[in-house]
């Protein structure tokens, strides 16, 4: 019988073996793995068993016979979404420890961040996939009983591998999100935290209220938590959640200041305002990051606003006339 500590170490060793075997672990993952190995000599001891298993399988006569995958099925068939949705409806019944400090911290890898206009997809140690938007930053902190990600800045879309024994948490500062397995988008900027769900169920917590979910979101649900104005709820087309991954930005009743912040993150284009009240102008808009000028032209048509481009490429926005 293994002690809880040994069982946890065993689980981590297996997680790393599965992640390495994916052939898709990124540099941050490799660094985290090395940090974990070096943390305690027992970690290497636990991992060696899995390394030996992986290498042994390469020469397994029994395994070599299993070389007939089923006929190809389109990956995006309806059943896939249905199965994922069904799996992700399994919601943990009891509240787990929500907060990120634990008694036995695992190796903490360095933050993963993207540059302006960069969109990067990465596989997390459990196989969940995170897509980061422009100028976004996350930290991961995986433990035997919980998978934790902190969104420090920007946009992140998560496709979470279901694992009801290890809930997946996203800490976005003023709110913590808990899921078992689902797809959702979280954004964090200076004004708000936004959460939208594409598949499955997402529970949202207020860290100050401990383990009582304040919101439960289903596909198409979106909430925006403004630091000053509280929570607003809206609905979106589930398929449109996370469309920034394809370079598409959508805003509903957002300030031009917020939109400018997003444009800067996705296009390296800076918007400058002639007066602060212009930044507060509320707009509903949807446009591709490659087509900012079209958005600005539409803005000129609908609002008393004019724009021009400075020598350094910045866009200057002023009142028309």
């Amino acid at each position: 019988m293994k002690s809880p500590g040994e069982a946890k170490r065993e689980t981590m060793a297996r997680e790393w073996a599965v992640a390495l075997n994916s052939g898709e672990m990124d540099l941050a993952g490799h660094n985290a793995f090395e940090a974990w190995l070096n943390e305690d000599q027992k970690n290497l001891h636990a991992f060696e068993k899995y390394a030996a298993i992986l290498q042994t399988l390469e020469g397994s006569p029994e395994l070599s016979k299993a070389d007939s995958p089923p006929a190809h099925v389109a990956q995006h068939g309806w059943w896939r979404g249905a199965a994922a949705a069904a799996a992700s409806l399994i919601v943990v019944a009891c509240a787990a420890f929500l907060f990120f400090g634990t008694d036995t911290p695992a190796a903490k890898p360095p933050p993963i961040q993207t540059a302006a206009a960069e969109i990067r997809t990465l596989t997390l140690p459990d196989g969940s996939v995170a897509t980061l938007g422009g100028r976004s930053r996350i930290e991961t902190h995986y433990e035997a009983d919980a998978r934790r990600v902190t969104l420090l800045e920007g946009d992140a879309y998560f496709d979470v591998v279901p694992d009801k024994s290890r809930p997946f948490y996203v800490d976005a500062g003023t709110r913590v999100v808990r899921v078992v397995g689902t797809e959702f988008s979280v954004s964090r900027d200076s004004a708000a935290v936004r959460i939208a769900v594409a598949e499955g169920k997402v529970e949202v917590f207020d860290p100050e209220l401990n383990d009582v979910p304040v919101e439960a979101l289903l596909p198409g649900d979106k909430i925006e938590i403004l630091s000053k104005k509280g929570i607003t709820r809206s609905t979106v087309e589930p398929a449109s959640v996370g469309r920034w991954r394809q370079g598409w930005l959508s805003f509903r009743d957002a300030s031009l200041g917020e939109i400018a912040e997003s444009i800067e993150r996705y296009s390296n284009t800076r918007l400058r305002f002639a007066s602060t009240d212009l930044e507060e102008t509320r707009v509903t808009a949807s446009f591709g990051v490659d087509d900012i000028e079209q958005f600005l032209a539409a803005l000129e048509g609908s609002h008393d606003i004019a724009w021009s481009r400075a020598d350094n490429g910045d866009i200057l926005i002023r009142k028309a006339g």
Binding site: E24, L63, Q75, R80, G127, D159, V161, P162
Partner: peptide
């Protein structure tokens, strides 16, 4: 993954199974 050297994404594409 071990004998043919596929990545998990390639296995998904080959079999239609989900990444998870």
């Amino acid at each position: 993954s071990r004998i043919k050297g596929y990545t998990y994404t390639e296995i998904c594409n080959e079999t239609g199974w989900s990444y998870g």
